[in-house]
Design a protein around this nucleic acid. Structure first.
Lengths: 259, 259
DNA sequence: CGCTGTTTTGACTTCCCTCAAGCATGGTGG
DNA sequence: CCACCATGCTTGAGGGAAGTCAAAACAGCG
């Protein structure tokens, strides 16, 4: 659903009804449905459009010649993959589906047109891009500096907060269709070790993870274990000076209630 | 020198004399000189301009509360730090000088103006940005998947090729004002271990590293050890269809000679 | 009910970290 | 001119976190 994208962008600045419907319109022109393990686009191919995740989880990954795989990003509903990649002649990585996945394919021209028409949307899309970069930086910190337990905990925290920010968390629970093998390839640790870290967290009554659902039993403890500081996600409405003035009945306070 | 930036952008598309001089002009409006360990900008501060490295090396890094440091990027002459960061309210990382450092401070408005005036420059700057992202992705792969020896070798290869691409490599030698402690923080391994990996490479007659200079004695062997594939640097002129037609005497072939 | 993919456990190995000390180098000032 | 100090590099020894191998238990699903 495009609603997730709107929801996400409004963590930066409030959009006008007009801008919202523009997004809805161009994101429904062309959609694709994929199954787990399908690739959205593969390393070496020429990128020609931007992919917006509507439903399901995807990931960016890179394969080494000997088969090792590093997952570089998880894409959740509302995330856009490779906003400007079409400048490059060939993808240097792949995008794959982790679950059943519905995506919208948006042409660069359409995106360009949106940006030209609305300063607010241009800035919001740029913000979105910057946040994606910030997330990758945090992942790099995770891999370079944090121990096994810290890494696992940090990733769980991040995914939860991001899902929350697009309205997909339910209290202390969120959908989690990621296998331990995939977690391992994202965290740079072995499957066996990932499993043991998760066992430890369960034993300490920190989380429940089963049936493609993650629940936090003790958010504060996990946060502390991870050293998780969500400021890199820039969810505190940095662009509020650009906010569209709401012409409808609901004043800004209504938004607080649903956030 | 701005020449390094021009040189770099021309790995994407050839610029016109006019575009070159525009870059020279706006990059000389305001410059700053820093000493090693000085910070260009610090975590938490509000970014207000783009920093272009003219001379010397810098790095992007993030500190954890307990003092651990992850270096997220090395900035070489011609590199721009945080092209669009001014959209965000606060920096989520710092930029520091590794050597004596001369940088140009470019206002976002000026950059915007350049982009508006020249499609070619807009695309070139975007390409530059995409390459920076690609480099960070490769670092993440490095940290997540590669062993100690591979990591060290890979980083050395990358820095050499990047310096080469801006004209700062001299045969098999290049400047290397990075300490082993800094290398370690970039590679996510301890200083002691970094030192041992370098010793091993010296013992195998792969490199000479002393006096702030790096020399490759056996490029192919290092490349193979690292599993280094430079395609992520996108140095193969992806934007050649945008090339400015040269009005001067020297035809494109002259460029080959200097490359 | 049997298949495939995922999670879990145990035993053993190794890579890398930590601690700790000893060198080199180069700049400063007495 | 040489003693001094700071910073960076090098080496040794021992411990621990995480990897590998291998097999069993446990889903889902047609």
């Amino acid at each position: 659903m495009v609603a997730h994208l709107v929801r996400k962008l409004e963590n930066f600045t409030l959009l006008s009804d007009d801008e919202r419907s523009t997004l809805f319109e161009i994101a429904s022109r062309r959609t694709r449905l994929l199954q787990p393990r399908d690739d959205v686009i593969r390393q070496g191919e020429q990128p020609y459009c931007v992919n917006l995740v509507l439903e399901g989880f995807a990931c960016r990954y890179k394969l080494l010649p000997d088969g090792r795989r590093q997952i570089l990003a998880f894409f959740l509903p509302g995330d856009m993959c490779d906003l400007y990649a079409s400048v490059l002649a060939a993808m240097d990585h792949s995008i794959g589906a982790l679950s059943t996945l519905r995506i919208a394919q948006i042409l660069p021209e359409d995106l360009q047109e949106i940006s030209n028409r609305s300063v607010r949307l241009r800035q919001a899309l740029r913000w979105n891009n910057l946040v994606d970069e910030a997330i990758l930086r945090e992942w790099t910190v995770n891999l370079g500096q944090r121990s096994g337990p810290e890494r696992v905990a940090h990733l769980l925290c991040e995914i939860f907060v991001r899902l929350q920010s697009v309205g997909l968390a339910n209290g202390r629970k969120c959908p989690f269709p990621i296998t331990q093998a995939e977690l391992s390839d994202a965290l740079g640790i072995s499957i066996v070790h990932t499993n043991r870290m998760l066992q430890d967290m369960r034993a300490d009554d920190l989380i429940v993870l089963k049936g493609r659902t993650l629940e936090f039993l003790n958010w504060e403890a996990v946060k502390q274990l991870a050293g998780f500081d969500p400021s890199y996600l820039h969810l505190d409405r940095d662009g509020r000076q650009l906010d569209a003035v709401s012409e409808t009945v609901a004043p800004p306070s209504a938004r607080q209630g649903t956030a």
